[in-house]
């Protein structure tokens, strides 16, 4: 199994009047869960889309390494799974139909699919809802279906853009359990969130604000360094410091 890591250097991206990213450098290693933490407009989605090859940086580099060997993006593209922030499933297709659709897109064989499908439905506790159209799922279930579609192909890298936004606390917990399982399978997971309490659960955090990284590293050491009790405080302190 390949282990993919990503290294980005000085990424900048301008979208319309906004400087979405202003020089971001970071590296993402397998078997870790990276949290992109920041409010709306911090540049989280832009970074995700650049990592997925859906946007191209104005300047800077984005390198993909497979077992420490630099590889072209097209080579790793099919082993990266992505779950966009905005609703992107088909409201008129059922849970089962979504899974079949993605099976075909990823050219997964029938046998592997059956196994994977059963596994995912069990993990997400979605077995009873297989025939329900995506448009009639609750917020939490919708996100779970999105995650299932992303995980169907057993990816090496999983990019999740605000997977828990608008999801109730219980569904969020279930979601986190699923994420922990992924990193135990040596997968690189990068997720973004606007919930500050979720930052503490990541293996590493990148705290973003206005297109810049304002802090990065293990959640604990980041908090210690910034002398904040939690990430909510970190933002509030910055605000106060800015005002002074």
């Amino acid at each position: 199994m390949s282990q993919i890591s990503i290294q980005i250097k000085n990424l900048s991206k301008r979208l319309g009047p906004n400087q979405a990213l202003a020089g971001i450098t970071a590296s993402f290693e397998p078997a870790l869960l990276y949290g992109l933490i920041g409010p709306d407009g911090a540049g989280k989605t832009t970074l995700m889309r650049i990592l997925m090859g859906l946007l191209f940086p104005d300047s800077g580099e984005c390198a993909y390494l497979d077992n420490h060997q630099t590889v072209a993006f097209e080579r790793v593209r099919s082993s990266i799974a992505y779950m966009p922030q905005q609703q992107s499933l088909y409201p008129d297709l059922s849970v089962a139909e979504h899974l079949e659709f993605f099976r075909d897109l990823y050219l997964i064989s029938g046998k592997v699919f059956q196994k994977r499908r059963a596994e995912l439905l069990h993990l997400t506790r979605m077995e009873p809802f297989q025939d329900r159209p995506a448009g009639k799922l609750s917020g939490g279930m919708y996100k779970k279906l999105g995650l299932m579609c992303a995980l169907l192909q057993s990816p090496d890298v999983v990019l999740l853009d605000e997977p828990t936004n608008g999801v109730d606390p219980i569904s969020r917990r279930e979601f986190w359990d699923l994420l922990y399982r992924l990193i135990r399978q040596k997968i690189l997971v990068i997720m973004s969130t606007a919930y500050m309490d979720e930052a503490e659960r990541c293996s590493r955090v990148l705290v973003l604000d206005e297109g810049k990284i304002i802090a990065a590293g293990e959640p604990l050491s980041v908090l210690k360094q910034e002398k904040a009790g939690n990430f909510e405080e970190l933002f509030l302190q910055r605000q106060k410091a800015g005002r002074r």
Binding site: P39, A194, F235, Q239
Partner: peptide, 13 residues
Amino acid sequence: DEPTAGVSPVIRN
């Protein structure tokens, strides 16, 4: 109805 979804802690406060 969910007035603070996705806003920064500063704005939330």
